[in-house]
Design a protein around this nucleic acid. Structure first.
Lengths: 127, 127
DNA sequence: CCGAATCCGAGAAGATACTG
DNA sequence: CAGTATCTTCTCGGATTCGG
């Protein structure tokens, strides 16, 4: 009954926020930006806790938005590598600032954990 | 069964992203930053489509995170006003940049719609 | 009257097994 | 290895009710 994605085209920010607010979206972008082009399986291992279903779904969405590139290599076994587009650079820059902010608020991260993985799914932060 | 919010304290960015990725969170912050301190009912009308339950829930979370202030005025009828804390300023600055980015990508917003309201719920952007 | 808590249904996200 | 299908689980959201 409520609105679907293309009911109207209300406002740019809203559109962008809606995308980023999608489950796992930020994490995927963050991982791709820190570890560079990554294959599907590796990506799934990096974004700890994500299901294959969610990962494909989000990647498809990000691909449609022009944020990630999907490179299919028909070897045996096949290899699919995902990477950030040029457009994504601006977005990642903002995520970087978010990182800086988080460090100031919660203290710096342990220097070991490579790209800082999530523990809880976005939905679980209800407190 | 899976992880709850306080399982570990993994990484600052992750924590912050998890909070922002929560449903409606960004919209609420955006509205509060653009229209200033707002009462519950008005806020609910601004964040179009949100239920009172979700709004209370999110506001409680944001309050615990030190992002919003809750001011209760025991008049008749009672008035509860929510406003951004000082800490939220840094966060809003980032949202502002997100706004700029969105304008470059999707074109500028119509100058009328005050703070750009969402149409779809965050969960609905599955494409 | 304004704001918060409760119950229940719809629909999304998680887990697992399976296919190309 | 990459992705899909299916089933289960549980969050989200609406209406109603309670409290001040």
């Amino acid at each position: 009954m409520s609105s679907r994605t293309s009911d109207r085209n209300p406002c740019p920010v809203s559109q962008l926020m809606t995308m980023l607010s999608g489950p796992w979206t930020m994490y995927i972008l963050w991982i791709l930006s820190t570890v560079g082009p990554t294959r599907f399986g590796a990506l799934r291992r990096q974004v700890e806790g994500i299901s294959t279903k969610m990962l494909t779904e989000r990647l498809r969405m990000l691909e449609q938005e022009g944020i990630v590139n999907r490179h299919y290599e028909p070897t045996v076994p096949p290899q699919v590598t995902y990477s950030l587009t040029e457009r994504a650079g601006e977005l990642v820059a903002i995520l970087d600032q978010l990182n800086g902010l988080a460090q100031r608020w919660y203290g710096p991260a342990a220097p070991d954990a490579a790209p800082c993985l999530p523990t809880a799914t976005p939905q679980e932060l209800t407190l």
